[in-house]
């Protein structure tokens, strides 16, 4: 665990936490009695939670690394977008600031969990080698990539849940689910904004059939087989509604195929 790196991360994430950290640090320097207080009140305690996690299964560690790589991608994307003058109209700034805040928090969380095992942050190319030249140039391009990243993130986390079912990994499973549903909240609002600015009401907060672009992000979302059985037609509802009601997983391989063009 690199505590200095962790503190840097926390600084970017949570000013209030930084205050607590500084308070606790002062206490610990001023008084030997402060040590226990600091452990209870600062990110060190988080690290200690995950130090037990050296009992996590190797498979779970791989899930964390995979998740962190995706969170790096999202975090860097929103940092760049939120920092670029004139890219995001004022009315939408609170939305993307909130999404960006969460992605930074997810990065800090996963880095803390992995400690020295955390993978290096890759360099990213948000034009995907020139195929999406407007990702950081126009609001449409930015929202388009935002919704694609968020929908990918939802499917990616969902695809890994089954790898976190060992008894010692159960705490990680719960944290992963807690991130997963936040990514889904992000996806819903990014999709709503995309539908609004493109005047395309058929782009809803939920995914209809396998409609959407890039196609690889939505491949298989038209699945109607749940629990091993085709439920198309259930309750007399349309196939559109049935596919909207269930989000689908993506395998790690499918996610890497989507993400790889964004690695510089």
């Amino acid at each position: 665990m690199n505590i200095f790196k962790l503190i840097e991360d926390i600084k970017q994430v949570d000013a209030e936490a930084l205050d607590r950290l500084e308070f606790a640090s002062r206490r610990s320097f001023m008084s030997s009695l402060g040590t226990k207080l600091m452990a209870a009140a600062t990110p060190v305690a988080l690290a200690s939670v995950f130090n037990k996690a050296f009992a996590f299964t190797p498979g779970a560690i791989e899930v964390l690394k995979f998740a962190l790589t995706l969170e790096y991608l999202e975090d860097e994307f929103y940092k760049a977008g939120n920092a670029k003058a004139g890219l995001i109209p004022d009315m939408y700034k609170p939305v993307f600031a909130q999404i960006g805040k969460h992605e930074s928090q997810h990065v800090a969380f996963l880095e803390s969990a992995l400690g020295a095992a955390a993978p290096a942050k890759p360099n990213f190319d948000f034009t995907a080698k020139g195929t999406l030249p407007d990702s950081l140039n126009t609001f449409d391009g930015f929202v388009f990539l935002s919704h694609a990243f968020e929908d990918t993130g939802v499917r990616a986390y969902k695809g890994q849940a089954g790898n976190l079912m060992a008894a010692e990994d159960k705490p990680l499973l719960e944290y992963a689910l807690q991130i997963h549903s936040v990514e889904a909240r992000h996806a819903a609002v990014a999709r709503k904004i995309l539908g609004t600015i493109r005047n395309r009401p058929e782009i809803k907060p939920w995914i209809t059939l396998n409609e959407g672009s890039p196609a690889a992000v939505y491949a298989g979302e038209d699945n109607t087989v749940q629990g091993g059985v085709d439920i198309n037609g259930i309750a007399g509802k349309s196939k559109e509604a049935v596919t909207e009601a269930f989000d689908e997983i993506l395998t790690k391989e499918a996610v890497f195929a989507i993400v790889t063009p964004f690695l510089a």
């Binding site: 926390i10 994430v13 949570d14 936490a17 607590r20 209870a40 009140a41 990110p43 305690a45 988080l46 939670v49 805040k101 969460h102 992605e103 930074s104 928090q105 997810h106 800090a108 969380f109 944290y175 689910l177 807690q178 991130i179 549903s181 936040v182 909240r185």
Partner: peptide, 9 residues
């Protein structure tokens, strides 16, 4: 988690 928020539902 230990008194801090990490973007978790």
């Amino acid at each position: 988690v230990n008194g801090m928020m990490f973007g978790l539902d």
